[in-house]
Design a protein around this nucleic acid. Sequence first.
DNA 1: ATGAAAGCGCTAACAG
DNA 2: CTGTTAGCGCTTTCAT
Lengths: 337, 337
Amino acid sequence: MASIKDVARAAGVSVATVSRALSGRGNVSAAAQAAVQRAASDLGYVVSSSASGLASGRTRNIGVLVPVINHWFYASVLEGICTALMREGYDTTLYQLTKDSGQRHQIFSDFLQRQRVDAVIAVNVELSEQELVALHALNKPLVGVGGPLPGVPTLHVDDEAVSALGTNHLLSLGHVRVGYIGGSSETDLDFRVPSHRRIGYERALAEAGIDVDEQLCVSADFTMGQGYTVAKQLLGNPATRPTAIFAASDEMAIGAILAARDLGLQLPQDLSVVGVDDHELAELFGLTTIRQQPHQQGELAVAMLLKAIRGEAPARAHHLEHQLIVRSSTSRPATDA
Amino acid sequence: MASIKDVARAAGVSVATVSRALSGRGNVSAAAQAAVQRAASDLGYVVSSSASGLASGRTRNIGVLVPVINHWFYASVLEGICTALMREGYDTTLYQLTKDSGQRHQIFSDFLQRQRVDAVIAVNVELSEQELVALHALNKPLVGVGGPLPGVPTLHVDDEAVSALGTNHLLSLGHVRVGYIGGSSETDLDFRVPSHRRIGYERALAEAGIDVDEQLCVSADFTMGQGYTVAKQLLGNPATRPTAIFAASDEMAIGAILAARDLGLQLPQDLSVVGVDDHELAELFGLTTIRQQPHQQGELAVAMLLKAIRGEAPARAHHLEHQLIVRSSTSRPATDA
DNA sequence: ATGAAAGCGCTAACAG
DNA sequence: CTGTTAGCGCTTTCAT
């Protein structure tokens, strides 16, 4: 394991010059720069993260907090983060923030305290007051993605606008009985998203002069399986069934499509469905949806964070773009004739 | 930020004793132990990873190499790894090994060289000879999950046995025309899995005295979308269509089920389908499958690695259990009458 | 069982 | 622009 001394010797300069040449901090003559570069690559020298971290206080490592990994949205954001960080020479250290309070406590009181990371990205995590305090007490740059976090600049789509758009798409096609599949109050606690989505849905209806029919609003946990289950309930009774459904996630929307098929309903003649996400499966099901781009959200979060680390800008919360993608799951309702 | 000196002072002992008490290395009297523990928690002291790493050479951090994150299998393994490592007080640092050769090179020549990790878990990554050499040159404990890696103890299911089991299930039901959806030669390079799965399929047929019909064997990329596409081809011609399909992943199997439905085929009367994984969606589709438990594979990999780190055991490659889960997607073929 | 002290490998004043 | 040097906070001999 070559050390900085070896490089200094080989390059015929002092260790300080090596440090400067390799880190790009401080002035180094072109000649020295070249000599160092050459010696370093000859020796296969790479700066030790521990030594550098100890001396400088900078680790070139970012902590990422996620509630679950095995889920399209989180995995996509994580990929974006990881890709962007790597490009900048940063490592990504992953902390899964489950429901287990012991584990959570350990993360905030040990893992994040041991100075392994320069900053933290929190993806859609819901924190207790205490946890939030602990996070801020780190005194490190923080960026949120997804759910808003008090005091933390956060990137997320405008959930209310998203669902208003989806609902309006259906209303504009002529649907009047528009169902809603959202998050349960339980998942509400984690995401804060469903309630905003619900509000957007209700707002769109109100603007169209339509009353909310509680019978048409059901809750699931954002998965395809639950989407299927609740949609079957919603669609089972031909007398009360909606002609269209707005689902707060593509996975639930696809569950609803499968339920409709199993009930013998044809899309879009008998039922229109709109989702949210533009999940990788949306196309396969011809699902009309509102696209959000989690991968890109991750990359953006990294960009914001690095700015903060470099002291360039006071990161600000930010609404991300969303876009209606119309496919074959929506059309005008069948005329009752 | 309290340092070890502060703790030493507060506990009335030397820094050496604090270090010993907190790390559990070396002998410490019960009294000193208690005093240190108390002082540390009073001060909210946590060992600095950089300082400890620099002094000891141990980082309490494990590097995980994955080809992609946004995929059920990888995300599940990763969750298992992350959970198990956290339980042991280790951090998880993620390296996504894409196809980009520049990025890959950077990972092996920089990221893994900077001594940030004590050991590496490689999940289903296919390495070049050079990369493999670089990995071994780290001289750190290594464990593989999924695809076998030369010279690295690896955990994985017996792919040949898995597909032989799936195929045999279909044969035992009386199917004779059994199709196969496997990986393409392109994905073969990454996984090495498809070829083993293909071999198991062929072995099962051979043992039943059935010749492989190349017309019935198609390739996809392990996704639902491609599974759908190739299955439509496979099932389109009623004269040549198989009565059963064995797919090398549940996602492809589900794609095949969707294709069959779109072609007006009833499962399991007109077509039986078997997958591999026991993906979270398998139940929704009533898919008969061979379960492998990636989350558990991740946990096991961690256990093996920690043993190696502690110098306890020479980790050995290992076949993991798999299990046939019979659901409603398989039955006897319809009698031609 | 405990303490003193020598590093671990690097960075960042500081002096020139 | 460059070199010297004092730490960064901890671990680990080596004594005692």
